[in-house]
Design a protein around this nucleic acid. Structure first.
Length: 712
RNA sequence: GGCGAGGUAGCUCAGUUGGUUAGAGCACAGGAUUCAUAACCCUGAGGUCCCGGGUUCAAAUCCCGGUCUCGCUACCA
């Protein structure tokens, strides 16, 4: 492929509702940064954009929980996340935010354009509206009398008593649960992106044109979606937090967060252009721009199917590649901030990157390990022990040690200067060294172009390894012993050290995309300007001028001590245990979906005794249990309530084997309206306690008692 | 349950269109060395390529079935 005229690199917009962990870093930001730094070293025209994703329901929900405003939440996390990236050397050209007016403007324009061209579909319907709360009401916010059974507390989506699925219109005497008033009917329109219209385009573009240059997991995921039949997707929502829908009928609606967030890449580019007095348009419109999205595997559909359709309709360029990474686990388990099982970037920075503790060298140590175990083809696992071994055994012992011994010997044997070459004493090994460096450069360049960062970094380390071997063969320290008797000794020492020094300069260039702080430090040691790090200089052996005096040796990294690793492991267990206790001592709810994270500390609204009295709780004994066909989570239980036996379905199949729970005494909500699931009617509900790790426990009497006993 | 991606040495991973004794680094063992952050260098040992069938002269690689992990999706009163 010809070299593109310019590049636009994006890294997934982090959601500004909390801190981000090193799994996020390894998944998207670090590979994106390596790629962008490499391209910049190649003197390509590159813009690397990112920013906070600040819309969506989870943010106002979190605000309610913290007793503050949505704005306060994003204002709290946006700057922390931005600074965390900076501290870890992620060199965005701009870190923008979707709450910025420029983004609202950009997203509005985008929407209006598609709307005007007829690329969106609308579905208009009458929906209930609460005048007092001035908002449309989601189905579950409406109560009324069930047309089927006459139950007076039926919800807009379903009657809990008879289990019938309802639409709000069917309710008799509907009431808003927000204000208690009767809602009025009002016409509302929602907009849809008809993905189904673009199936042919997606098939051709992804499955035909990119079948060989995109990662298998990415292609597979896209194929799965396309084959599964594409559906129109709603792009608006009744919510007041986000980008207002900018066309008639859009009052009280915002763009759905998945529609607005990727447009954030565009608005970030615009802001960058303003800041730097550039034109943003070619970056999104000119086919000679190469667009690359770096994301984690959970984001594939949005960046490969949905956003490209939007871009195509809007007249923008399409991504050239979407190198999605798999996930990084931690010490044998999935990373999870809410469970305390993670390493926050913020924590790592505060603990490890303090000047007295190793400073930026330890930012690069982390970058090194995360790249060495990058989940490029399958999930990988961060272990503190692995971190220590990788840093100590490769980064320090091979790479940094080569530079250090070079510097020490140069000062001892070459008068602290870059020695000259004595051509008459150059041998095969000296010549081979130069060729090896040129080879390595070619190899590393090729790997970087293919987004194979793990392997590319390995090749850089390997080059340092070759340096060690070269020096070992030459043994300048032995030659130095014979300097009085062997008139050729100094010349040979000079040749060797010259080679090692030029190799060091090359290493600085090649390691720069991966470990930028280290490359800077090496420039300092070499007394050269950062311009030397330009990629075209790699493979040259004249980077350091003969006779030039260099700085005294300085260690590039420090080793990681056993005690530090043990402390981290202890801390990790403690964090997880603390979260667990914190959550076990608070009432358990059954949060679902996106609202799940962090909801457990919040009590539900107060109720009166009569409310409680409506619930008939009983002790039941499980007498039969079996898995429900075609459902991963459901168990079908036969429960003895003393006066009767009933079938109850429960979503616990992931946690318990049917044969293990027969005979268990459990707490049953006995008067819950029956509900059909997977074609089987469930008459009641089993109460479960859930800990921070998501593990479920039965709520049972402390001693066996008669089935059917009441609970109050 | 449907779909997708994975399962190769103790660990992290390579293995191009099927082709001799399956590779690398780390860790481990032995040796050599001392310029260097107990670092480097040399040598070595380590594998039922998840399991079971099949195709083939030949399978880690292709086909079928099973199993485990992760993701998307359904489902989770």
């Amino acid at each position: 492929m010809n070299t593109p005229k310019r590049y636009l690199i994006t890294a997934a917009l982090p959601y500004a509702n909390g801190l981000k962990h090193i799994g996020h870093l390894a998944g998207a930001y670090l590979p994106a940064d390596i790629y962008a730094r490499y391209l910049k070293a190649q003197k390509r025209d590159v813009v690397f954009v990112c920013g906070s994703d600040e819309h969506g329901t989870a943010i106002p929900i979190q605000a309610t929980k913290e007793g503050t405003t949505a704005q306060a939440i994003i204002d709290k996390y946006h700057p922390i996340i931005e600074q965390n990236f900076k501290d870890l050397g992620i060199g965005f050209d701009i870190y923008h935010r979707t709450s910025d007016p420029l983004h609202h403007e950009t997203a509005s324009e985008f929407f209006k354009d598609l709307e005007a061209k007829g690329d969106l579909e609308t579905k208009t319907s009458e929906q209930y509206f609460d005048e007092a709360a001035n908002t449309f009401l989601a189905d579950r916010y409406i109560k009324g009398t069930c047309p089927n059974c006459g139950h007076s507390e039926a919800y807009g989506d379903q009657c809990e008593k008879c289990g019938k699925s309802l639409s709000p219109e069917e309710l008799i005497n509907p009431v808003s649960t927000l204000s208690g008033n009767a809602p009025i009917k009002k016409e509302t329109t929602h907009w849809y992106l008809p993905l189904n219209r673009h199936e042919d385009f997606l098939r051709k573009w992804i499955l035909a044109e990119h079948a060989n240059d995109w990662r298998p997991a990415v292609i597979g995921q896209c194929k799965s979606w396309i084959e599964g039949g594409l559906q129109p997707r709603a792009v608006t929502r009744d919510l007041d937090w986000g980008v207002k829908v900018p066309v008639a009928g859009g009052d009280g609606k915002v763009l759905y967060v998945w529609f607005d967030a990727p447009i954030g890449y565009i608005s970030a580019t615009k802001q960058w252009a303003i800041n730097n007095n550039k034109d943003w348009k070619p970056y999104w419109n000119d086919p000679e721009t190469k667009l690359v999205h770096f994301i984690g595997k959970d984001n594939i559909v949005f960046h490969c199917i949905i956003f490209p359709v939007m871009l195509k309709l809007h007249g923008n360029i399409l991504p050239e590649n979407v190198p999605a990474n798999e996930f990084m686990n931690l010490e044998g388990d999935k990373m999870s901030t809410s469970r305390g099982w993670s390493i926050e970037m913020d924590d790592y920075i505060n603990k490890w990157i303090k000047p007295e503790n190793g400073g930026t060298g330890l930012a690069d140590s982390l970058r090194f390990y995360l790249t060495a175990i990058a989940p490029e083809s399958k999930d990988s696992e961060f272990t503190w022990k692995g971190f220590q071994e990788s840093v100590n055994g490769e980064l320090v012992s091979i790479f940094a040690n080569f530079v250090n011994r070079t510097w020490v010997l140069m000062h001892k044997l070459c008068n602290s200067k870059v020695p000259k070459i004595h051509p008459e004493y150059l041998d095969d090994e000296d010549h081979a060294l130069l060729l090896t460096v040129k080879d390595a450069k070619e190899k590393i360049t090729g790997l970087l172009e293919l987004y194979k960062f793990r392997e590319a970094q390995f090749e850089v380390i390997n080059l340092a390894r070759i340096g060690n071997q070269y020096m070992q063969k030459k043994e300048p320290w032995i030659l130095a012993k014979n300097i009085d008797t062997d008139p050729t000794a100094q010349a040979k020492i000079d040749n060797c050290m010259h080679g090692c020094l030029q190799l060091s300069a090359n290493l600085a260039i090649l390691i720069n995309p991966f470990l930028p702080f280290t490359a800077q430090k090496m420039c300092h040691l070499m007394k050269v300007v950062p311009k030397m790090l330009e990629w075209e200089n790699a493979g040259e052996f004249n980077l350091l001028k003969v006779g030039y005096t260099l700085r005294p040796p300085e260690l590039l990294f420090r080793k990681i001590e056993d005690a530090e690793i043990e402390a981290e492991l202890t801390q990790l267990s403690a964090n997880a245990a603390a979260k667990k206790i914190n959550m076990e001592t608070t009432p358990v709810t059954t949060p679902t979906g996106a609202d799940k994270e962090g909801t457990k500390n919040e009590l539900k609204p107060e109720i009166v005794f009569d409310d409680f009295g409506k619930i008939d709780l009983r002790v039941g004994t499980i007498i039969e249990a079996k898995k429900v066909e075609k459902a991963d989570k459901l168990l079908e239980l036969l429960v003895d309530l003393g006066f009767e036996q009933r079938t109850i379905l429960s979503g616990i199949a992931m946690h318990f084997k049917p044969e293990d729970i027969v005979g268990k005494q459990v707490t049953i909500v006995a008067n819950l309206a029956p509900r059909k699931m997977r074609g089987i009617e469930s008459k009641g509900m089993i109460l479960m306690a859930e800990d921070a790790a998501g593990k479920l426990y039965f709520v049972s009497p402390s001693e066996a008692i008669a089935a059917g006993s009441t609970i109050a």
